[in-house]
Design a protein around this nucleic acid. Structure first.
Lengths: 343, 343
DNA sequence: AGGAATCTTGCAATCGTTTGCAAAAGACTC
DNA sequence: GAGTCTTTTGCAAACGATTGCAAGATTCCT
C-alpha cells in the first residue's frame, strides 16, 4: 500500500498540492515557500525547495495568473496594413522584435506575438487586450490604425506603440524623429550635389509621410522644386518592378533619391545600375534605417540610422513604468546620418 | 450614434457572470452559448451573443485555459548557443518566425516567443513546457542542445524542432536536407571551375556541419583536395574581420567558397572585392538560404535555397497532428540550387 | 389527459494557485 | 508560570470559465 502510493506520488507531482502532501505541509505553505516569502520557516522552505527541484515541479502559470490577475506576459502585436506581405519578413520590424524579446526576458516577462489584419478584424486590439492573457501590449507600427489606437489608449494604460509621434496624440509612442530624419536625408543629398529629389516609397503610413515631409521642408527652404513622390509597395518582389518603372519614366530628370527604407534603397541601386545610371555620379541615394544591408550594397549606402536597440529598450521601459502606474511621455529618438558612398 | 452610447455603457461586463446577470440566465448557459454548443436555445443564444457584442465581452483565456487544460498557445523557443548575438537579427530565423506566426494564427493558435540561453539555464526546455502556458512547443534550431531535446522528446509529445535530421533520432524535426544542399553547392562550384574549395562558417552546429559534410562528399568523390573549413562567427560585426583574416591568409590559394549562410556570403563578397579578388573570375561563391539579400549582392549570389514557408507550414502541420495524438515522422525538405552570378 | 421523450437550463464541483485571517507554536518578559 | 509578542502554519475563499448531472420546461404521443 505505501509502496504503491509512493510510486504514484513520485511520478505525478504536478500540482502544488501533490508537493504539499510529499512535504507534509499544506498547499498554502508550499506556495509561500516557492514564492520566496519571508513568512516561511527556513528549514521548511529548504525542504520544499529540495523536493520541488527533485521532482522538477513548476507551478502552473495559468492558475497563478488567474488568481493573481497578472500573467507575466506582454503582448506584441503587428498590425498588417494595406501591404500585407510587407512586414512578413521586414528586417526592421523583425530586428526590433528580437531586441524586444531580449528586453522583456531580462525583465522577467514572456512575449506573446500576434500578427493581425485590421481590415478583416476591426476588433484586433480590444480582442488582444481583453483576452486576459497579457499584462500589457506593445504595438509595432501604427499602420493605418492611428484612430483605433487612440481610442483604446483612453481606456487602457499599459500600452506603448512603436511609430510616429504626432502633436497632441494620446497614446504613448516610441519612435525616431522621422521628419528630422527626412530633413537630414534631403540635406545630405543636396550637399552631395542633388537638386531634383525624389522620395521612393509609400507616403501613406505616418512614419513614411513624416520622412517625406521632412525632405519637403528642406527642398522648400532651399528653393528647390518639390520632392517627387515615387510610390511603391514595400515587399521586394513588387517593389522591384515598380522602381524600374519609376526610374524608366523619371530617372533622367532626377539627381537625388531618398528611399523610405534601406530595403527600397538597395533595390533602387540595383535598378539604377541596370538602367545605366551612376551612383553617386548621376544620382545620389540616401536610405533609412541603417540595416545590415546598408553596409553591403555597392556602392555602400548612405543612410539615416534608427537606433533599434534603444527603441526596444524604450518601449519596454515605458511599458513597465506604465504597468507600475506611472503616466509617461512619448519618447522620440534622434536619427543619425551615416555617411557612406551613395551620397 | 448608438455606437458612442454603447461605448459609454460598457461599464462592468468583465466576467461571464456579469453577462449572465444581464441576460437573466446562469453563467453556465452563457458559457455554452458563447462556445456555440447546440444545447442552447437559439433565441437565448442570440440574446447572449448580442449582449456580448454590445458590451465587448471576451471570456478570460486564463480561466478558460485552466479549466479546459489547454491554452490555445504554442510556444516557440529559440535556443541561443555559443554565439549569442547570432540569432538576434538572423534573417533566416526571423523570417521563419514570421511565417510561423501566420501559420499558427491561421490555425487559431497564439504564439509565445521565448529566447533562451541554455548555458546559463540548463532547464530551459522543461521549464517552458512545464509552465502550463503552452499546448505545444516548436524549437527553432537545435543549437548545441541535441541531447537535451532528445531526452525531452521521450516524455513529451507535442514538440517539433527545426533543424537537421540525423539517422535514428527520437525527436520530430523539420528541416532542409543540409547534406544534399552542401553537395549541390560544391558541385556547382566545381562546375563553375573551382578546384580548391573552402567552407566559410562555424562547423559546430549540426546544420552547418551537415552542409560542410556534403561539400566534403563531393570533393572526395571528385578526387579534389579536402574542403578547407574557415571558421567564423555569424554576427556580421565579428564575421567581417574574421573573413578578412581568412582571406588574407588563404585567399590566393582558393578558387571556390561555400558559405554557410547568405549573410556570410554577402560579407565575403565585400571582403573579396576589398582584397582585389574577382568573383566569379578568381573565386566562385555559393551561399545558403536564398534570403532576399542574395538577389542584391554584386554580383548576385548563387545560393542553395531553403523553402522557409514550406518549413513553417510543415512545423505547424506536424505539431497539430501530434497535438491530435498522431505520431509523426520527421520532414526533410529538398534544397534547391538558385543560379545567379557568383558561381 | 397522462406519461414518455426531448430540449433547455441551473447547480455546483473543478482546474491549480494565492492570500486574508486566525489558530497554533514558540520565544520572551516580569 | 501567566501573559504578551512573534513566527509559522493551516483553512478556506477567491480568480473566471467549463461541464456532468439532474431538474424544469416543452413537445409529442396514444
Amino acid at each position: 500500500m505505501p509502496d504503491r502510493e509512493d510510486k504514484l506520488t513520485r511520478t505525478t507531482v504536478r500540482t502544488i498540492t501533490d508537493l504539499a502532501r510529499l512535504a507534509g505541509v499544506s498547499p498554502g505553505t508550499v506556495s509561500r515557500a516557492l514564492a520566496g516569502k519571508s513568512l516561511v520557516n527556513t528549514q521548511t522552505r529548504q525542504k520544499i525547495e529540495a523536493l520541488a527541484r527533485e521532482h522538477g515541479f513548476r507551478p502552473n502559470q495559468m492558475a497563478s495568473g488567474l488568481r493573481r490577475q497578472k500573467t507575466g506576459v506582454i503582448g506584441v502585436v503587428i498590425p498588417l496594413g494595406h501591404d500585407i506581405r510587407q512586414q512578413i519578413s521586414d528586417s526592421f520590424f523583425m530586428t526590433l522584435l528580437g531586441f524586444l524579446a531580449d528586453e522583456l526576458t531580462t525583465n522577467g516577462y514572456d512575449l506573446m506575438l500576434r500578427r493581425v489584419v485590421p481590415d478583416t478584424d476591426p476588433d484586433w486590439l480590444d480582442r488582444f487586450i481583453g483576452s486576459g492573457m497579457i499584462d500589457g501590449v506593445i504595438v509595432i507600427g501604427q499602420s493605418d490604425q492611428f484612430e483605433r489606437i487612440e481610442e483604446v489608449a483612453d481606456g487602457y494604460r499599459p500600452m506603448v506603440v512603436w511609430g510616429n509621434h504626432t502633436e497632441g496624440q494620446r497614446h504613448c509612442v516610441v519612435g525616431t524623429d522621422n521628419r528630422l530624419g527626412g530633413r537630414m536625408a534631403a540635406e545630405r543629398l543636396i550637399a552631395a550635389g542633388a537638386q531634383r529629389i525624389a522620395f521612393l516609397g509609400d507616403t501613406g503610413p505616418m512614419e513614411f509621410a513624416a520622412r517625406f515631409a521632412g525632405a519637403q521642408d528642406v527642398a522648400a527652404r532651399m528653393g528647390l522644386p518639390p520632392v517627387l513622390p515615387l510610390v511603391t509597395h514595400l515587399s521586394p518582389d513588387r517593389a522591384s518592378e515598380e522602381i524600374a518603372a519609376h526610374l524608366a519614366q523619371h530617372g533622367r530628370e532626377l539627381d537625388g533619391i531618398f528611399a523610405a527604407t534601406d530595403t527600397l534603397a538597395a533595390l533602387c541601386l540595383t535598378e539604377l545600375r541596370a538602367q545605366g545610371l551612376a551612383v553617386p555620379g548621376d544620382v545620389r541615394v540616401v536610405g533609412f534605417d541603417d540595416l545590415p544591408i546598408a553596409r553591403q550594397t555597392v556602392p555602400a549606402l548612405t543612410t539615416v540610422r534608427q537606433d533599434i536597440a534603444a527603441g526596444a529598450h524604450g518601449l519596454v521601459d515605458l511599458l513597465l513604468r506604465r504597468l507600475a502606474g506611472e503616466s509617461t511621455e512619448s519618447l522620440v529618438l534622434p536619427p543619425e546620418l551615416v555617411l557612406r558612398e551613395t551620397a
